[in-house]
């Protein structure tokens, strides 16, 4: 028994050290990932536009040498004959890296659209969601309005909602005629439609999470607020909501992750985000495997960064005793 215990302690330590190693590796990968994205964006907006360096959207590194390596490796298969097995995967790998370098600028620009779309939509959605949730819980006779809004939007697919906004002429024409849309830094009208679509969709889900959190705040809290002379609205604003929003953070993380992933659907209405760019390249080069693998990795990088960030936020705003993280589905 004591031997097993000693072993238990040993394996415990071992696990700790591999955990540490894993954490360091994660940090390194994270820095590399975001370093690449930010450098690329900054360059494309500034130096690239002024035609310094390779130019906006062009590669920093040339994939040519790696392609050469891949060719050489493939060529050497013939020369080496029986030793071909270990060489082949290397050639594939070199090919893959060459391709990654090749499409990296396009993916970085796509990632910018993905991130902006998600962030703007979730923030705007929040400002619709809070009044909706309050209306749903404290709205009295107007509750059904909020109920209808959330249930209708949560009951239909996001893609169908995007199609309504994009293919029906009203919004598209109006946005297309707006003077600033599609000029210079301002993206095309499809992007604005996507923002509207994701905001509405996200707001319904957020309203639902916030409602759940509102209902979990003890009724006595509002009574106590009224007792010290606050109006009902003030009580909700200063006492109930601050507690609620802490409860809602885990669910909010969830929603952020969902939006990041579902922002890929904006590609169907021609928003040039990650998926759109990758699928365009894939359908012209037929290199499905490496391109979609890279695409998945970039999404994974963004999603994991987002969950990490939200965990930090949660810890920072935590008040001892309230706002336990429950029911989270890690992204």
């Amino acid at each position: 028994m004591s031997v097993a215990d000693a072993l238990g302690i040993d394996t415990g330590r071992l696990r700790e050290s591999t955990d540490d190693l894993g954490r360091v590796a994660m940090v390194v990968v994270g820095i590399a990932f975001w370093g690449w994205l930010v450098t690329r964006w900054l360059y494309d907006w500034t130096l690239g536009r002024w035609e310094i360096g390779p130019g906006a959207g062009e590669n920093f590194l040339s994939p040519a040498p790696l392609e050469g390596v891949a060719d050489a490796l493939e060529g050497s298969v013939v020369a080496l004959g029986p030793v071909r097995i270990p060489v082949d995967p290397l050639a594939t790998l070199a090919d893959g890296i060459a391709l990654a370098i090749d499409i990296a600028p396009a993916l970085a620009t796509g990632a910018w659209y993905t991130i902006v779309l998600t962030t703007v939509a979730i923030v705007l959605g929040f400002f619709i969601a809070v009044p909706m949730a309050v209306l749903r819980v404290y709205g009295g006779p107007f509750r059904w309005l909020a109920l209808a809004y959330t249930e209708l939007i949560r009951g239909t697919p996001l893609l169908a909602q995007l199609f309504v906004l994009y293919y029906t002429p009203y919004l598209a024409l109006w946005l297309n005629d707006a003077p600033v849309v599609g000029e210079g830094f301002v993206p095309d009208y499809a992007f604005w439609i996507a923002i509207i679509g994701f905001t509405i969709n996200g707001s319904a889900y957020q309203a639902e999470y916030i409602r759940g959190a509102l209902e979990s705040v003890d009724e006595g809290q509002l009574t106590a607020a009224r007792a010290i002379g606050l109006s009902k609205l003030e009580g909700i604003r200063h006492v109930v909501l601050p507690q609620t929003l802490r409860y809602a953070i885990p669910a909010w993380t969830n929603e952020l992750v969902y939006l990041i992933k579902y922002s890929s659907l904006a590609g169907f209405i021609t928003v040039p985000e990650l998926y759109y760019r990758a699928s365009r390249i894939a359908s012209s080069t037929f290199e499905y495997t490496p391109i979609f693998t890279l695409l998945a990795l970039v999404y994974l990088g963004i999603v994991l960064s987002a969950t990490n960030l939200m965990t930090r936020v949660e810890r920072r705003v935590a008040v001892p005793g309230i706002g336990q993280a429950e029911g989270r589905q890690q992204g």
Binding site: K261, S264, F292
Partner: peptide, 20 residues
């Protein structure tokens, strides 16, 4: 596997299962 599947858009997963 869970993190991988939950961190990737369903659209990308589906394209993967279809084309790759």
């Amino acid at each position: 596997f869970g993190v991988l599947l939950r961190g990737t858009p369903i659209l990308v997963i589906m394209i993967f299962t279809f084309f790759v």
